[in-house]
């Protein structure tokens, strides 16, 4: 069956970026306000799901050539590394470090190792969600 999905395809191309950047925003906002890796990851994967809906899995895979299971692995390793790093310094597992830095353009910013952990969570959530969507969506 051939359906005319011109409008959704056109919209999806734009809306994808809006959702994706909003996901990044939510992810970074999690530093002090509601948000964080989990919600950000869900939003980011919803952006990809929108593309999958508008086009199909094969097209999306050529556009975003990411192996999502690898993404899970990388995310979990990143989270584990952040948590385990203090062990080498002699601090308890999961100790976080933070400080204020003056960065070019942004100015005074607080950087926190929890951010790295959250990046791991972000990747895991995107990986898991997309793996599930692909598993269900793959066989027609």
């Amino acid at each position: 069956m051939k359906t005319n999905d011109m409008i959704i395809q056109f919209t999806a191309k734009i809306v994808f970026f809006i959702i994706f950047f909003f996901a990044i925003h939510i992810f970074l906002a999690g530093h002090y306000t509601p948000g964080g890796g989990f919600v950000g990851g869900l939003l980011a994967s919803s952006a990809i799901v929108l593309l999958v809906l508008a086009f199909d899995i094969k097209t999306v895979r050529t556009v975003i050539p990411v192996n999502y299971t690898t993404l899970i692995g990388i995310g979990l390793l990143l989270a584990l590394a952040t948590a385990a790093f203090p062990m080498f310094k002699g601090d308890p597992f999961f100790t976080h470090y933070f400080d204020y830095f003056t960065l070019p353009l942004i100015g005074k910013t607080s950087l926190h190792t929890a951010m790295l952990f959250d990046t791991g969570v972000f990747l895991v959530v995107v990986g898991v969600t997309m793996t599930i969507i692909q598993t269900i969506g793959e066989d027609e």
């Binding site: 989990f38 969600t129 599930i132 598993t135 269900i136 066989d139």
Partner: peptide
């Protein structure tokens, strides 16, 4: 939050399993 994340994962897995077993 922890419990939501866990139940999200389990429900997602369960849905995939239900779909597979339906097939």
């Amino acid at each position: 939050l922890t419990a939501i994340v866990i139940s999200f994962g389990v429900t997602a897995f369960f849905l995939v399993l239900a779909y597979r077993s339906y097939q």
